[in-house]
Design a protein around this nucleic acid. Structure first.
Length: 187
DNA sequence: CGGCAGATACGCT
DNA sequence: GCGTATCTGCCGT
């Protein structure tokens, strides 16, 4: 899997659809299947790494397979998987999960029970899995937060579109999601 | 159900 | 200061 994550973000993003994110918390195991991703690269003005290394962005320039978690809009966390070679600033934003295990805990963490709204957005899934800034720089091959390969998604079942919520370089087709999946954040 | 405003901290100019 | 890789509730249709 390290081979895959060390590729460029735009290649990694579709490949990790179907992979699992596993969170161990309070004796529970919370598992979600990755159903929506976006690529960000230092060559792209929409990326935090575009301006180079800063205290915030330095993990994006580190080795692949680590977590880049940032805080935004004064109240939300977003979770990324660092990709590419060390020294190159890139990552894949995980935008949505399909809840598989520990759904009760996710509901408690989110403070709501409608399953379709549990993890269908980058900040929502962080809330559901209790991912916060403490996970910035965390090695994703270790508990309590692990990313694991799953069943690869057939290319014909992957939709490629523009990214959400950005104003620069918004023409790039760097958002990927599993076609017809019920837990994608937005069509 | 679609559109919009408000919440609210922080990194960077 | 300003803009933000967002979410929610509230409004009108």
């Amino acid at each position: 899997m390290d081979n895959i994550l060390s590729e460029e973000a735009a290649k990694v993003a579709p490949k990790i659809l179907g992979w699992k994110l596993i969170r161990y918390h309070d004796g529970a195991r919370l598992v979600g299947r990755i159903v929506e991703t976006e690529a960000y690269d230092q060559s792209d003005a929409a990326s935090h790494s575009y301006r180079g290394v800063t205290p915030r962005t330095k993990v994006m320039f580190g080795p692949s397979g680590f977590a880049y978690v940032y805080f935004t809009y004064g109240m939300h966390y977003c979770f990324n998987v660092v990709t590419g070679q060390e020294g190159h600033g890139s990552a894949v934003l995980i935008r949505a999960l399909e809840p598989l295990e520990g759904i009760d805990s996710m509901e408690a963490n989110r403070g709501r029970t409608d399953q379709a709204q549990l993890t269908n957005g980058p900040a929502k899934l962080c809330q559901a899995l209790k991912i916060n800034r403490d996970f910035n720089g965390h090695n994703l091959s270790k508990k309590p937060l692990v990313i694991a390969p799953g069943v690869p998604i057939d290319k014909a079942a992957i939709v490629r579109t523009t990214r959400i919520g950005i104003s620069k370089d918004s023409h790039r087709l760097w958002r990927f999601y599993i076609k017809d999946n019920h837990f994608v954040s937005k069509l």
